[in-house]
Write a protein that binds this DNA or RNA. Structure first.
Lengths: 116, 116
DNA sequence: TGTTTATATGAACATATATTCACATAAATA
DNA sequence: TATTTATGTGAATATATGTTCATATAAACA
């Protein structure tokens, strides 16, 4: 018997339905941590700066227009979550997105903001 | 002349390259606000509870295992950002994801957390 | 109409977080 | 080796944020 056919109950809502598909706490925490990395304007701008390839810290700093220290802190944050990777070349350190996954996620969010 | 052919410069890095494609501050803010909505374990679990369709507040509350007040606050948060929509039926208020976009974004993040 | 059930909300509080400041490390050059 | 350039980092601080508590609204029922 489909749900829609059930006679509308009066009185207290005796819901026996247990919601299915709620993710467990640990997964929820990890997922929220991933999104948290994208939940700050400075980090978003850093990531957007890396969409087209790698860039070194002072290029990123100039592009984002924030103090080098702030940028470094955020780069570390993103690095710890493996959203970006880096390589050293002499005095410079070049950063880039860790994989296409991240770019996708970013672009999908951007899409939603711009349209829809 | 391709970049790779340029002789490696010594001395201070006189970078004339201006990073292309950095999104503007306003877009960055909006984008970060979108991701911020997904950047909390409780909100993540609420959204996951709504992946399979609508649910009313006390169903969500039971599923997520948090106080009704906390859930209501977070529902309002998600509502204000238009990530969910609601309809009232008698004493109950049913919530559901606002559109497929949101589900996609959520699932994509979840994918990244579970695998690669 | 008074009570119960369902949901919403403001204020308070504790915690998390982003930036700044001062300084540390590291590599290249004079 | 002393200095300059590039980047990293700990502590401090101000602000943002999530939950709780008390209470409000709203609908249904006795």
């Amino acid at each position: 018997m489909p749900r829609k056919m059930l006679k509308k109950r009066a009185g207290p809502h005796n819901s026996t339905r247990t919601l299915k598909g709620v993710i467990d706490e640990e997964t929820a925490l990890k997922l929220s941590e991933l999104f948290k990395a994208l939940a700050d304007p400075t980090r978003v701008r850093i990531l957007s700066a890396l969409r087209n390839g790698e860039a070194c810290v002072h290029e990123i700093t100039a592009a984002v227009g924030m103090s080098q220290s702030a940028i470094s802190h955020q780069l570390r944050y993103l690095r710890n979550l493996r959203l970006i990777k880096h390589r050293r070349q002499g005095r410079h350190v070049y950063y880039q997105l860790d994989d296409a996954h991240i770019r996708d996620l970013f672009n999908r969010g951007l899409d939603h903001v711009k349209h829809g």
